[in-house]
Amino acid sequence: MSDLFEIEAQPRSDAGKGASRRLRRTGQVPGILYGAHQDPEMISVGHNELIQHLEHEVFYSHILSLKLDGKEQQVILKDLQRHPAKPFVTHVDFLRVSADEKIKTHVPVHFINEDTAPGVKMGGAVSHHITDLEVSCLPKDLPEFIEVDMDGMEIGDIILMSGVALPEGVELPALASGAPEHDLPVVSVHGAHAVEEEEEMGAAEGEAEGEE
């Protein structure tokens, strides 16, 4: 997979909350670069540049090129912290990747043929139980997203994680143990009345908790 995103990073030496606050005031986001059997490095990246990248869904599930001290490193976005009340990123973690070592990360799920599914045409309601999946694969096999094809789904049908068609070389760690309880539903189609019943039950439970 070719690199679509390049990130300019700067090394930083000051640690602690005070240093991070000073860094943010200059328009930088503190971060950590780790993995690939190398020592972790404290870095910073430009907030505006990062925000522009985050507008693209594939940025979250793509091999990125991070430039640090004149050296390019292949990484993935591993963690992101945002301010609870303001549109600011407060911290970012990048994980180095090695071409011959599998990585685990989350990729978004895209549902296709939803509008043409027979159950939907009959008035059924769709529940997206999972909107991203953790995958395990080599960096070269990392998909930008995983498609879940709803073609042919009738009312009452459910697609489980084990029923998702995966690209070659991609596995779902959740299914590695073979335990049936880990094989969670990804999407289901059910009658509209079932949604109403669920909402009524949720409201009733909320009222009961409020009376306690």
Rank of each mutant, 00 (worst) to 15 (best):
S20N: 14
D115P: 01
P30A: 12
P173V: 05
V148K: 11
S2Y: 10
F59G: 05
L4C: 06
V135D: 00
K102W: 10
G163W: 06
L184H: 13
A192Y: 09
K67T: 06
G31C: 13
C137V: 04
A192K: 14
G27C: 07
E171P: 01
G169R: 03
A204F: 09
P87M: 03
E134G: 11
I103N: 04
D93L: 06
S20G: 06
Q52A: 13
A208D: 07
A165F: 00
A192H: 06
S65W: 00
I76L: 09
A9M: 13
L23N: 01
G163Y: 05
V126K: 14
I51Y: 13
G18M: 00
I146M: 12
I112H: 15
A125I: 15
E144T: 11
D151Q: 15
S20P: 06
S13K: 04
S2C: 02
E196T: 13
E101Y: 00
A174G: 02
V89I: 15
P30F: 14
D3R: 12
C137E: 07
E144F: 07
E181G: 01
H182P: 01
K86H: 06
P87T: 06
M1P: 08
L133A: 10
G35K: 03
F111W: 09
L64N: 04
G119R: 12
H182T: 06
E101C: 00
Q38S: 08
